[in-house]
């Protein structure tokens, strides 16, 4: 556990050198938040003031919280592992006396912690000033929400890990990574709450880990899922995390064996 903590801190440090880039990213997240909130509020207004349990205020809140979580959850790109596989550097990771998946997860979480406040606070602040935020008044949803965010970030990592592993077998990975971004973009609740999906799309989403990355944490933080329902959401997230991480380990082992046997 101490090793894990050290790796998390290291991941945090690596990202703290990019201050201006972080500010720029937060600004862009905020402007997109404004556009997204306008779209959700517009749709809710067109539906007569309420849409799948969201009113104008909670709909806007949804958009702002999602924007605040984009950077920590890392929606758009993670190809660190793929690059190391392509360059053969993954052999170094294999030689280290620690589990590679565990080490990369620590780095991913460290980055998320670093981004949490500087990338998360500006969209929330803008939301509070522009549309107002509908947030619960009791502490419990926030405590559970924090757990849910950590699980969401970890699920995102586990899926990125799996996508990156394709580098063991494919030379050009951009197609696979783009596919992951697209799936995440549609199914995680990034742009439209999953609760708005037509039945067929909702079923598709429920069969994937993507809603566990964004929709789940937002549901818990805003107390849309409360009490046992919230625990249920956390359980679903944890189950996806365990499943995808395990799958990632198996595939990694296959890839590593290929590397050892065929020499890359």
């Amino acid at each position: 556990m101490r090793l894990f903590a050290t790796l998390v801190v290291l991941g945090f440090r690596r990202w703290s050198t990019y201050r201006l880039a972080t500010a720029a990213g937060a600004f862009t997240n905020t402007v997109f938040g404004l556009i997204k909130a306008s779209i959700t509020v517009g749709a809710i207004g067109a539906a007569g003031g309420e849409l799948a349990g969201y009113d104008a205020q909670t709909g806007a809140t949804y958009a702002w919280i999602v924007q605040a979580l984009i950077a920590p959850v890392n929606v758009f790109n993670w190809n660190e592992l793929a690059l190391r596989i392509r360059d053969g550097d993954v052999a170094i990771d294999l030689a280290r006396p620690m589990d590679p998946q565990f080490a990369y997860l620590a780095g991913f979480l460290g980055r998320a912690i670093h981004q949490f406040i500087p990338r998360g606070a500006p969209p929330l602040l803008a939301g509070a000033l522009i549309t107002g935020l509908a947030l619960p008044a009791t502490p419990l949803p926030y405590a559970l929400g924090l757990v849910s965010v950590v699980l969401g970030v970890s699920v995102s990592f586990s899926v990125w890990w799996l996508a990156n592993l394709a580098a063991f077998w494919l030379i050009e990975l951009r197609g696979v990574l783009t596919l992951n971004v697209v799936a995440m973009g549609i199914l995680s609740g990034l742009v439209i709450p999953v609760h708005w999906f037509p039945d067929w799309l909702a079923t598709v989403a429920a069969l994937t880990p993507y809603p566990s990355m964004l929709q789940a944490p937002v549901d818990v933080i805003t107390a849309r899922a409360e009490g046992t329902a919230a625990l249920g959401v956390l359980a679903v997230q944890a189950a996806w995390l365990a499943g995808v991480l395990l799958l990632g380990r198996l595939v990694f082992a296959r890839g590593a064996r290929k590397l050892v046997v065929q020499g890359g």
């Binding site: 067109a46 951009r174 783009t178 971004v181 549609i186 439209i192 999906f197």
Partner: peptide, 23 residues
């Protein structure tokens, strides 16, 4: 991949109009 991104962008409009008639 680029086709998929185009479809993803449109999926958003599609989902909104799965819920409302006018925006």
């Amino acid at each position: 991949g680029s086709v998929a991104i185009g479809l993803m962008e449109f999926a958003e409009v599609y989902v909104v109009f799965a819920n409302v008639d006018v925006l």
